[in-house]
Nucleic acid binder design. Structure first.
Lengths: 150, 150
DNA sequence: TCTAATATCTCGCTCATCGAGATACTTGGT
DNA sequence: ACCAAGTATCTCGATGAGCGAGATATTAGA
């Protein structure tokens, strides 16, 4: 069988793919262990990000972020609320809207999962000098942009 | 509200998360556009990897790789076969087994998705010198290992 | 040869998500 | 002030991926 000659950089590309795979697997494993579906975890991450950025969350925004329709979004919010991870609160300014408040439990859950991983990665980053970190940043930035177009 | 002071490296960590998010989104988008479910795409990637490595694929291996039980695996293989992406072939040596052969269509489909992304990334990698590439490799390697433990 | 192990498949069920549409509230034009 | 159109959310019924349990076929070991 004739095999196409692989360019030198392919090794790094496969490595990047393995990294994303490992991160996804870790997330799925964590989700399963806590009675969450993959979607629930993605939702939680989005909600925590929004909370950290000070952006109010609503079912509409959340559903759009995850690519769910309104029915699926309602079901998702129901699940998260039933688990006590978020609360529904009617917006007093626009009473059509429902605001989603993340409970302390959700924050703690996020910390328990991402905390150790983040700590290990920060420790790893300490072993790079400024120039190397700049290279990593530029690489990740480039890949992110490359992944946006397809 | 008191905000925890973020260490300097957090920026890179968020960037890495964005990259994995973009790659996942791109994959999901591609999958949807081709009538594939996320699982189907992951299966296809696994099958193409195995084919490239010269490892024979079976429903058992595939299901284990994806974390599906046998019923789900059968349904998955049914879908992929119905789409003409793989073929089931009885193994003549151990006739309990079914070998999964990836069709040319599947290879072409993989190329059409990963090809442009890979090309862009290779072009990006050309802009780094050997030392920078080594740093990127060490970083990715470290993150992969960090993600394995939780 | 009889039994245990292995590989795959079938059946019936659960539940996340979808499409369609209902409900409640707000806004802008008149 | 009023009414139509727009917006945010929810309800209902249907679809389909994946699961648990177990059936079937084949191989390997005592």
């Amino acid at each position: 069988m004739v095999q196409r000659q692989e360019p030198a950089g392919m090794e790094l590309i496969h490595l990047l793919r393995e990294v994303t795979l490992q991160l996804d697997l870790a997330g799925a494993q964590f989700a399963g262990r806590n009675g969450l579906h993959p979607t629930d975890l993605r939702a939680l991450i989005g909600l925590l990000d929004a909370a950290r950025a000070g952006v109010p969350s609503t079912p509409g925004r959340l559903g759009a972020h995850l690519g769910l329709n309104s029915a699926g979004t309602t079901a998702l919010v129901d699940r998260l609320e039933r688990l006590g991870l978020i609360r529904r609160v009617r917006d007093t300014e626009d009473r059509r809207r429902v605001l989603l408040e993340v409970d302390e439990r959700a924050v703690a859950l996020g910390q328990s999962f991402f905390g150790p991983l983040i700590d290990r990665t920060l420790t790893l980053l300490d072993t790079f000098d400024a120039g190397e970190r700049a290279a990593i940043r530029r690489f990740l930035d480039g890949v992110r942009e490359a992944a946006k177009s397809p």
